[in-house]
Structures are given as structure tokens and as C-alpha cells.
Design a protein around this nucleic acid. Structure first.
Lengths: 191, 191
DNA sequence: ATAGTTTCTTACCATAGGTCAATTTTTATT
DNA sequence: AATAAAAATTGACCTATGGTAAGAAACTAT
């Protein structure tokens, strides 16, 4: 929990009461590799702050093909925000790629913190702004870069993540098949 | 300006003072078709709320190819958020696809409104959340759908926009060439 | 209306990436 | 260590989309 408190304090002043409230609605959990925190099709009302390990969110189409939306490591948030904000059942699955520790929040309770302690607002707003910018960049990159260039950028952005992921996780994040990623890796190895 | 006030009041209660302040930092402008509000490479410090017309933001690569990040019609915001939040020069160009009316804000002043009138925070947070969700959906769609399916969804999401846009605008939003979009349209016309 | 410009379409060939299947490598289990 | 399971690689072939170019169509401006 102190990781989250530290992160928040890096952005705003946090009163004792606010910190206590945040603690009271939080729930520290540890999940084994392969554990599924949110399953596509089921109800979602949890948001997770990652304090250790590595998770990913992805959706599966009718043919069983997977498409990774996000990886989350220490100090990242992960959930199915599409479902939470549209009040639908999960369109994503969130699973642990290795044993992970998270702080679990109920989405409604976490949202309610802004009414109780408005001091959280700037923190949340800045989080959302940063996230929006990274999504804009990702969309522009996918539009203009080749698969190989997207892979280079991915390795820059997630320098340590390869040790936790399978190639097909990364491929499904980049929007190519694992066979294509394998060929891309072969080309890079040659150089 | 009343469009924006109405939109805000649909989400939060707005005090007289807050409304006056918002008005004091706003600047209603009309731009002709083809006008460029933000130009890639130059400084950005403006954010626009669209009250009429149609704009788009896009970037241009070294070969002159364009990639459209966003279209904006009535009641949408548009700017180069990447540049504003990273304090760099514009990575995007924002242009009018037809004559458009906008309310112009200085980004810093608009940001500062949250410190002066915290009542704006929930409004802004909800805007950002909705935007985040739409970006998540767009990324997942681009990963899993064919160009033809993306085009169908585009037409659903922007039912009236075709009258303002050229095909190559839409193609560059979908991530295909205008020739490919032309072929897709041909296929659909056959059915 | 006419000429000029821009956009759209079509046709041809090229290529990146997809699909399927077989094989090798790595990882997990006993 | 031996076996089984999962993941990664490789090869052959295929398909969707890209690149280029030329002509047609649709706007714009005089």
C-alpha cells in the first residue's frame, strides 16, 4: 500500500483522513501466475493497482484469437475500463503473467473518493491525461509504423517486460501474429 | 459559448463566478475551410471546443503521408494533447474540414480553472474517462477488425461526417490507403 | 461555361503479413 | 533425468493491402 501512497504524494498533498479512507477501501492481494482477475463476459467492479509482478488485459474474438490491450507492471493501474464506464459485462480478461501483488479497489468506492476527498481529483486527472497521451501515441504509431518499428518501440517502452511475457502476448499487443513477430526477431538477430 | 456552458451544466453545478471566469478566458472564433489552427512543428498552447463545423487532427511523416488521429464535430474538444502534456512542439496539425466555429482556450488557463474552481474537476474527469474508453475501443477494433469492418464502425460512429471529409481523410484514420478504401467502398456497393 | 485543380477510381504488380503444418526449443511435471 | 506440455521457429503458400500510374469525376475559380 505504501507504493500507492508514495505515488499519490508525489502528485498531491494527502491528509491523514484521506489516506485512512483510501486504506479502508483497499484490499491487498497476491495472485499466482495464470490467475484471472477479470474474465471476459462476467461482471466487473474491481480496479487494480499493481505493486509487483506483471499482468495484461486482452480480449478474445469468436475464433479464439487474443488481442492485448495493455500490460501492467509495478505502479500501473489495470482493469476493464470499457466495462466499468459503460456498465456492461467485461469485454476484457485480466490475467497475471507471473505471480503478482495488487491493491484491489471496488470501482464505485474508488470513484466515490473524489466526492469525499476532492484533493484526489488533480491526481486522478493527471493520471488520465498521461494515459490519454500514451494512447494517442500508440494509435499514431500503429497507423504509421511497420510491425518491426512498433516492436522496437515496444522494447523501448517496456524494457524489462520480455522476461514475463510470451512472444504471442507481445504479438497480440502489436497487432501481428506470433509467426510474424518470430520472423521480425529473426531479421533483427541477423543485423 | 452557451453550448459549452450547457454541456458543463449537464454534468455539474456551475456557480455564477465559475461561469464568468470560464467566459473570461474563452475566445470565440470562426475559421474558414482549410484553416490550420495548430501546425505540426510549431508551439501549441491552445485547446478548442467545437461549436460548429468539423476539424481533424493528423500527423505527417517524412514521406508526406498523413495519419488522422481524430475528427471533431460540435461539442467535441480538439488540440494536440501530446504536445501540451509533454511540453514539446506540435506533433499534430489541426485543420478545419469546413468553416467552423470554436471556443479557444489557452491550455494553461484552462488547466488552471481546476485550482480556482474545483467544481470543474468531476466534469473534466468524466470527459477524460469517456475519451479513454473510446480510445481503448479504437485500439481493440484496429487490432481485431479488417479494414472493411473498421470502415463500417466508422460510419456508425460518425454517421454525418462523410459530407465534410474526403475519402483520404477517412482512409488515414482507418490506417489504410485511399485506394484501399476505394476498393472497400466498391465491394460494399456491389452488395 | 471553361479551364484548372483536386479527389476518386481502376488496373496492374509488389510485398508485408497471415495461415497452416511440421519441427525444434523451452518449460513444467513427475 | 524422463516425459509431457507449451511455446517458438521455420517453410510453403496465400491473401489483403500497398505502390504506382493513368484516367475519370468532382469540385473551384475565373
Amino acid at each position: 500500500m505504501k507504493e500507492l501512497i508514495e505515488k499519490i504524494k508525489g502528485s498531491i498533498n494527502l491528509s491523514q483522513e484521506a489516506e485512512e479512507h483510501l486504506f479502508s477501501i483497499s484490499n491487498k492481494k497476491t495472485f499466482a501466475k495464470g490467475a484471472v482477475l477479470i474474465r471476459q463476459g462476467q461482471n466487473v467492479n474491481k480496479i487494480y493497482f499493481v505493486t509487483g509482478g506483471c499482468l495484461r488485459s486482452y480480449c478474445i474474438d469468436k475464433n479464439g484469437k487474443e488481442y492485448t490491450l495493455q500490460f501492467a507492471i509495478k505502479n500501473w493501474w489495470i482493469s476493464d475500463y470499457i466495462a466499468i464506464h459503460t456498465n456492461e459485462s467485461a469485454s476484457l480478461t485480466v490475467e497475471c503473467l507471473k505471480e503478482s501483488t495488487v491493491i484491489e479497489f471496488n470501482a464505485k468506492e474508488l470513484d466515490g473518493i473524489h466526492a469525499l476527498f476532492p484533493e484526489f481529483e488533480p491526481f486522478q486527472r493527471k493520471n488520465l491525461e498521461r494515459h490519454m497521451v500514451s494512447l494517442h501515441k500508440r494509435i499514431l504509431n500503429q497507423l504509421q509504423l511497420t510491425a518491426s518499428e512498433c516492436y522496437d518501440l515496444f522494447l523501448e517502452q517496456y524494457p524489462d517486460i520480455e522476461q514475463y511475457t510470451h512472444n504471442y502476448h507481445i504479438a497480440s499487443y502489436l497487432g501481428v501474429t506470433q509467426e510474424s513477430l518470430s520472423r521480425i526477431r529473426l531479421e533483427k538477430a541477423k543485423k
